[in-house]
């Protein structure tokens, strides 16, 4: 199962008052807080960990069809030391589950994907206003290929977006994220 998260980093720097008392300990584990406070540039790590938690939340809740919950500090992030081709890797633990993360960090955005197991994905990041649902449908129907007009995206009872073909829910692993000027989606490339 997969999840993603995009952060408009310019907006994040402007709107996040991370020095506010108790802000960090509501969201981050003790270990994460130590790393943040010792980092040369704390906001970068704050945003990276946040994106990892959000992306993993989406993958985890989709995997187990879980109702909503606001529990960011239950997601424990760790990062590998090295950055390979501009991609930072890491992993996230939530209860007994482990997810692998890949983080793409630019000057202006941070995008994270989280995966429960190895799967090939298609990903797209937009820096303009876009109808992300129709973008996903266009790409998904192209892969099949089927008529895009027969597809729709709606949220299920747990507020998790699902792709429907005609009226049938497809259980396609995908994830959507918006923040500020940015939108992104990921779609698993499977035969199902």
């Amino acid at each position: 199962m997969i999840g993603n998260d995009i952060i408009d980093f310019t907006l994040f720097l402007k709107e996040t008052n991370w020095k506010r008392p108790n802000f960090l300990n509501k969201i981050y584990t003790v270990k994460e807080q130590e790393q943040i406070l010792n980092a040369p540039d704390p906001p970068v790590l704050i945003a990276i960990f946040w994106a990892m938690k959000e992306a993993t939340y989406k993958a985890h809740h989709r995997k187990f069809s879980l109702p909503r919950k606001y529990n960011p500090s239950n997601y424990e992030c760790s990062l590998s030391e090295k950055e390979v081709n501009g991609i930072i890797s890491g992993d996230i633990k939530i209860l007994d589950n482990k997810y692998a993360a890949e983080i793409w960090k630019s000057e202006t955005f941070i995008h994270c994907t989280a995966k429960a197991s190895e799967v090939k994905i298609f990903q797209k990041i937009y820096k303009e206003e876009v109808d992300i649902k129709s973008e996903i449908i266009t790409h998904y129907s192209d892969f099949k290929p089927l008529n895009p007009l027969d597809f729709s995206i709606r949220k299920d009872e747990n507020y998790i977006p699902q792709i429907f073909h005609l009226e049938e829910e497809l259980n396609v692993p995908f994830s959507i994220s918006h923040d500020g000027a940015y939108s992104a989606f990921i779609l698993a490339l499977t035969n199902s």
Binding site: K26, E54, Y70
Partner: peptide
């Protein structure tokens, strides 16, 4: 969801209470 933390911190300040993790969930 990042601003939801600010909402929780503002509620804590306003009422002088502590919202533990289970409640925050």
């Amino acid at each position: 969801s990042a601003n939801l933390v600010d909402v929780i911190l503002d509620v804590e300040d306003e009422y002088n209470i502590e919202i533990d993790n289970d409640s925050m969930n």
